[in-house]
Every structure is written in structure tokens, then in C-alpha cells.
Amino acid sequence: MPIVINSLEYQLPADPRVSLLDFIRDHTGLPGTKKGCDHGQCGACTVILDGVRINSCLTLAVMHDNCDVITIEGIGSAEQPSALQQAFVKHDGFQCGYCTPGQICSATAMLAEIAEGWPSDATQDIGTRPSLSDEEIRERMSGNLCRCGAYPNIVAAIREVADAGQ
């Protein structure tokens, strides 16, 4: 069975060493997903796998037979950007832009996690539904580093979309 990326089917690689990240970038013509540290520390490679965000550098492509992946190319386009992509532009949520595909994929999945009521380390009472304070956004986005330091604007962009959705 193949892997499905942004609704298109691809055959998995023969070499088991190929990470999901390298497969997406080098075997499918989708260069939007970025390689930062390649060790799961920076989050630039974040994609949405079967509905949840993961580091695509820390998993092997061959382990994803019949799985469904959404990359930044599947979230929006220049013509039809998603609400988060528009908010990142509006709030200057980036400078160099290298971490941005990972930030957007991560934030897209994070808003779904909040809607599901998942707690985080910043949640005061984990028995209840979390609210989306700035502290919660920062904790939930801690797996996505930005060396340009655009963090305040990233938080503002996510907050705007989260507030509009409520």
C-alpha cells in the first residue's frame, strides 16, 4: 500500500534508512517541509500524520504504509492561504521564514488539540478543559524554534486565529 501525502499517493522508498522528512522533500517534489536540526529538537520538519503533528525527521518513511500526511503545501497556497498563514503575514510571525512551514503545521494541529480539550504542562487543572492563554500557546509551541526570535508575533498570530474561531 502507498503513503498518501496531501491527498496524492506515493510509493514508499526501497531504502529503509530514508526518513519521512527526506522522503517528502526528495522523493515527492514537496520542498516546503524544512530540515533544521534533523534530530527532533527544532520542529522545522513538523508535519501532520494521521491527524497529529510529528517530527518527520525522527521517523522512517517505510514505517508509514497506508498513512495520511499533510505538509505545508496541503494547508494552503499563495492564492488560498489558510487563516493561520494570513495571520502570520499580518503579524510578521517570521523573518527569514525557514521555521515557518513547521510553525504553521504545528499551530494548525495545536488548535485542533485545544478543540479536543487536550491539557498541556501549562494547564493549571488538567481535569478541566484548557483555555488558550499566551502561556498555553508558548508551552504548546515549545517544539518549534525560531532563531530570528519572532516568538511574540507568532503568539499574536495564533491568538488571533484562535480567538476568531471561538
Binding site: W118, I126, G127
Partner: peptide, 29 residues
């Protein structure tokens, strides 16, 4: 484990410990 309602109410120390570790991307995998 960390989002399971039974664990959050009956074994909160376990949910809290998991949430204190790594990132959401890593905990998902």
C-alpha cells in the same frame, strides 16, 4: 495516556509527568 480522562482524574501524577516531558510532536509519536 496524558489526555485520557481516566488518567487525568484518577492518576494525575502520570498525566502531569508525561506533559512535563518533550514536546507535543514527540509525545504524539
Amino acid at each position: 495516556v496524558a489526555v485520557d480522562q481516566r488518567i487525568r482524574s484518577d492518576y494525575p501524577v502520570l498525566a502531569k509527568a508525561i506533559l512535563a516531558g518533550a514536546t507535543q510532536q514527540l509525545r504524539n509519536k
